[in-house]
Nucleic acid binder design. Structure first.
Lengths: 396, 396
DNA sequence: CTGAAAGCGCTTACAG
DNA sequence: CTGAAAGCGCTTACAG
């Protein structure tokens, strides 16, 4: 902090070669150089060649700040995720990054660490950097966040979660419906005493929706989730294990445990095995996410899968379109697929599961697919235009 | 592409509020507004308050492009990793991002997908965006990449891998030494017939170094790795499993398999268990990385751990320093810790392992630590100044 | 198809 | 401590 009063404003700025030098070497105006790289159709082939040669010779890389200032386009996109320490979010970013890179956009990444305020701070920093578009996981951000975005009419999309009645364009799946499906499946196996291990719901709309879906399903079958059977804590294997031990230490044990995600389920399965509890015969356990590992270690976990790479790609494509003035923002609902594997079965005590009472064909369908996971099935998309007013159809 | 010839150059530019408007409202010059936010000590408290109030009232967010252009500082950092679909790189980015955010930097992220050319392309895009500093995983990039960086004297650091004689500042661990250690450990258990499953080495200096380290160790013990016992393929569980089956189908089975990373090892362990091979008694298997999962599922994997979060943080801190003109780039060597767990033991056939022949205290040390992994042990750092000439000591 | 010139929104040496 | 003004490196409406 002491000695950086070196005379910074040296003649010539950064020292990097500038467009003007390329122009000079190519013997054209700066406007022409700019056109060669931005609207090449407006420049004769001859001049173009000369300019490109000069640019190459000088190793010119355009200065994005100058470009952004003059064109009001930064070619920067932003993405906010809770954390990179989670395969599912990392995959989303991965898919998005690829699409953005293909389209000449660079990607700023910010992590909220599940803290809405941190999320807002990241959004502000990104706005200052001049992002053109923004993707953010979930909708748990201070309201001010969306005011900022609207105020600048900055195209944004929320990912991962999807709610029919969300005021925002979102690309993801319906957490509530997914857990309803999971609950229905477990009930269809014949389970009636069911416990749950969930991650914290505060500042996480998705988890709350999952629990709602679970309760919907149970309620429809006349089953209630007792308070003592709902364990909420850190989203990791250790808490899953700890919760399982506590649950199984109770007097009346459940025959199934529905976990809020795969990490919790993985911990629960491990702890159960350690206790000598047979999975799935003594106890069924389900997860959510279909992390890469869970279908590859024994016992293979019953869970639900969402294509996060695809979510990232779809978000990237939609935002690229929006940035170009083409295309409009809309919501896309992806399906969460039930993956029936080795950690669920009818309860040992139960008679044959009352499968007839439920439509199990859907589950069979999923099971069949499970055999060859990449059989070219694309996620089902349900589209809802949020900006019907814009009516920018290609074909009029 | 058709209809975006709307008259873009509307008077007033972006529509965002500008610094000049803040100045007007606060009744000061633009210079003063700028100073309030950049060098507040130069402005009286009274004026400062007025300016801040005006800025808040107008919801002014400074335009980074204008700022960057005028100041020649973008406050953007870049990081290049092979892929986000890998816990270890995601963690590095995570640690780095936190440090950069704390220091007012935003982070551009690029993935090379293990392709040097893609890495270079990302670097170029980032240079265009005006990154001030850059972190990149490994050193497999076209030479031109480093020319570009040097040409602009852009501070950069290579992460994950560390080589004593690298021409670049790097923060990481010595892959060769780590695998030498691993080999020594396995040999110390008494194994003499050892196979290996590795990821591809092309365009991946780190993997090549690992194999070298393994060979060093084996050679020192007079053991050779037969060509038929070295399986190289995709870095995933499936290849690990497939390789294991092929290895164990041979006439003379090895008693230990050293894998290039945890994913391969996880696949091998699973396949071995499926074949009814007792781990570790019939076969010892080792991994590398200590992914979160491997110490939490049975059988707990013997592997080596490197603190990737810390690598990210250290890289972030060093680069922030370099960007500020303070501090210089240097290399930091972190230690890779051997985690002795349940997938290794002396071979069943062997007499007591010839432990006396090797220094096993080191291993014991690690085993003890293993019990409480977070016992506050900081990575050992070995520092090498690469830019001795700069001699910017604080205390002269 | 090409050029001269204004302007994007900031910062900062210079002068007071 | 404060202001007037030049300038950072581009793009683009305008004129030809």
């Amino acid at each position: 902090m002491a000695d950086d009063k070196v005379a910074r404003r040296a003649r010539g700025g950064t020292g990097r070669t500038r467009l003007a030098e390329v122009a000079q070497l190519a013997q054209v105006s700066t406007a022409t150089v700019s056109r060669v790289f931005n609207t090449p159709t407006k420049v004769s082939a001859e001049v173009q060649a000369r300019v490109r040669e000069a640019a190459a010779a000088l190793h010119w890389i355009p200065n994005a700040a100058g470009r952004a200032l003059a064109s009001r386009r930064s070619h920067i996109a932003g993405v906010i995720i809770p954390t990179l320490d989670n395969e599912i979010f990392a995959r989303q970013v991965s898919g998005m990054q690829a699409i953005f890179a293909e389209n000449g956009f660079t990607l700023l990444i910010g992590c909220s660490n599940y803290d809405p305020a941190e999320g807002l701070a990241q959004v502000q920093a990104m706005l200052a950097q001049g992002i053109e578009v923004l993707a953010m996981v979930g909708e748990n951000y201070p309201p001010q966040t969306f005011d900022l975005l609207r105020q600048r009419s900055l195209p944004y999309v929320l990912t991962y979660g999807y709610r029919h009645d969300s005021p925002h364009p979102c690309i993801g799946f319906d957490n509530r419906a997914a857990f309803r499906q999971l609950a229905d499946y477990v009930l269809s196996l014949g389970h009636r005493r069911i416990a749950a291990i969930f991650q914290p719901m505060d500042a996480n709309d998705r988890v709350a929706a999952r629990l709602d879906g679970l309760r919907d399903g149970l309620a429809a079958a006349g089953v209630t989730l007792r308070a003592a059977d709902l364990h909420i804590g850190p989203s990791n294997m250790d808490f899953g294990a700890e919760s399982l031990r506590r649950i199984m230490a109770g007097k009346t044990r459940p025959t199934a445990i529905i976990c809020g995600n795969d990490n919790l389920a993985l911990g629960a399965v491990g702890a159960a095995l350690d206790l000598g509890i047979a999975i799935p015969h003594d106890l069924s356990i389900t997860g959510f996410d279909d992390l890469a590992i869970v279908s590859r270690i024994a016992p293979r976990l019953t869970t639900m899968r969402v294509d996060n790479l695809e979510i990232g790609r779809l978000a990237g494509e939609m935002l690229i379109g929006a940035a170009g003035g083409r295309g409009m923002l809309h919501s896309i609902e992806l399906r969460a697929d039930l993956c029936m594997r080795a950690t669920t079965s009818p309860p040992r005590s139960a008679a044959r599961a009352p499968a007839a009472a439920r439509d199990s064909d859907n589950a069979n369908d999923h099971q069949a697919r499970n055999q060859q996971p990449h059989a070219g099935i694309r996620p089902q998309r349900v589209q809802h235009d949020l900006q019907e007013d814009k009516k920018q159809r290609r074909t009029p």
